[in-house]
Design a protein around this nucleic acid. Sequence first.
DNA 1: ACCTGAACACCGTTCAAGT
DNA 2: ACCTGAACACCGTTCAAGT
Lengths: 247, 247
Amino acid sequence: VPTVVAAKQGHRGQRGSTAPAVTHEEAPRRGRPARLSRPAILAKALQLIDDEGADALTMRRLGGELGVEAMSLYRHVASKRALLDGVAEQMMAEVVSYREAQGDDWVERARNLVIGIGAVARRHPEAFELVGMRALNTEVAIRPIEALLAALRAGGFSPNRAVTVYRHLSGYARGYAMSEIVGFTLNPTRADPTQLTVGELPADEFPTIHELAGWLAREPTADEFIAGLDTIIAGLQQELATTRAAA
Amino acid sequence: VPTVVAAKQGHRGQRGSTAPAVTHEEAPRRGRPARLSRPAILAKALQLIDDEGADALTMRRLGGELGVEAMSLYRHVASKRALLDGVAEQMMAEVVSYREAQGDDWVERARNLVIGIGAVARRHPEAFELVGMRALNTEVAIRPIEALLAALRAGGFSPNRAVTVYRHLSGYARGYAMSEIVGFTLNPTRADPTQLTVGELPADEFPTIHELAGWLAREPTADEFIAGLDTIIAGLQQELATTRAAA
DNA sequence: ACCTGAACACCGTTCAAGT
DNA sequence: ACCTGAACACCGTTCAAGT
């Protein structure tokens, strides 16, 4: 039940702006029982984006979907921006692979992070396109990063290098996953009449594009995603071997 | 003058939706002279985003900035979505480094692509965040990719592998550049009171985060960006060496 | 304590009309 | 051919008021 986990741990990142909503959840309830809750709102928002696209998510529509006026939502989320942050956080909570691999192997940790991000992007393409590029400084998002950084340190990377390598890995994972959703060059996911096809490019100026037309048309796969990680890992292992030999 | 280049070459990707605007530009002018043009609109749109942020870009505001009613813009761009595509295209036109390196070395080509994307992201952070993750199938965006693919083929990669490697490189470049703008974990670019700091995370659950707090606070640099590319290149060169040895 | 009604200040986009 | 005025059907968000 990753939804509940996300919502609970997520409150750490919500201090200040929606303080009342946080407080009354742990205090004994008094007054009218709440028909709405932050977790329920976030879950419905993600579902709405999944089902009908990013444009369908309006405060009025979301309220209606929950049987409530739009304005009622503002008791639980500070703004639409904060709502989207919550959706991003909930998706990150689905990247739970760090639980499955308990080993200290940094290769396995890195693999889990990339596979997890790819999986969540494929499961929620519309939502990932909308909120997948936000900075996520909440406990639930930081937990798998702690695991990866620990593995990198144990694997022999210096403190400075461990941070850098984590940035490289997460940059690759998010960027490739996003490209997979919006479509690679000459392999768009959405049919768009204004976009070029290989046949419309002059063959004398674009000889390689013409040679590779068939390969460019190939759909990206999860394996191709992981192959990129394996290339990075190969480079890193070479670095570690060199560093160890020098020591 | 990269702006003009972008606008001219970009028309290739605009067939259909704004056909009249394209046609009259090459036909002898008749009737009232145009006060507006697609290139001028796109340039002003990018400037507006750079200066005042993504929210400032409304059709009404953009029209006002050009001394015209908002509705006049629709003669030159099909919709706001098409306008944003045009802005993305114009930014891609600034990735002109492929002109500078005429060598056939795939390492240099890859380096130029990554450096170019990083530079344009840093020059237009607000705009890159808004439109940097769109698929760009226009001549101006495809030209540097042709150069990279040609270099990869010449460097010894198979057709299939060249396409995959290009996808990995561009995925890394876009993802890392985007992370640099929105902020890395525990190193956000925007001060946000709802986001956690290292001190608020329990030390027993996040020991490595605490150990690396100082390094996580380190600002990302252009060198760190390129270092990730060098790791990928090291992995690829190892692959090429193995392939050659087997042949 | 929680939700609502009415209102404010906007949006993108259309369409017939002006010059 | 190019631009405008007025209007349509929405937005996110506020605030005082209801229960």
